[in-house]
Amino acid sequence: MADTVLLQVRVSSTLVRRIDELCSEGLYRNRSEAISDAIRMLLAKYSRTSPEARATALYLSGRLSRTGNPEELIFTPSTGRPHIEDDE
């Protein structure tokens, strides 16, 4: 058996009922197996996303720590002289 850790988490009773339904349908042997699969899916989802996408998710949920001023970032053009259009 793989190295396992006992994880105590609070989950809504509705979610637990749905997980139990999946188990009774035979999709999973027990709650642990179902929740492990859910965690694997969660990790796979975020392993496919970029740091920018993850930061956007945090920003939209109000959980991104705010610090610094981006206006301090000045970049040196390396590909010719940029032309910024002043109109369409």
Partner: peptide, 27 residues
Amino acid sequence: GVISRHAGEKSGRELYLSYLRSEEHRI
């Protein structure tokens, strides 16, 4: 996009994260 084109991908990505984290800007 413009910063990435003229200063490289790393700069563009850095700038994006910096604006999201900025206290003085609201995206």
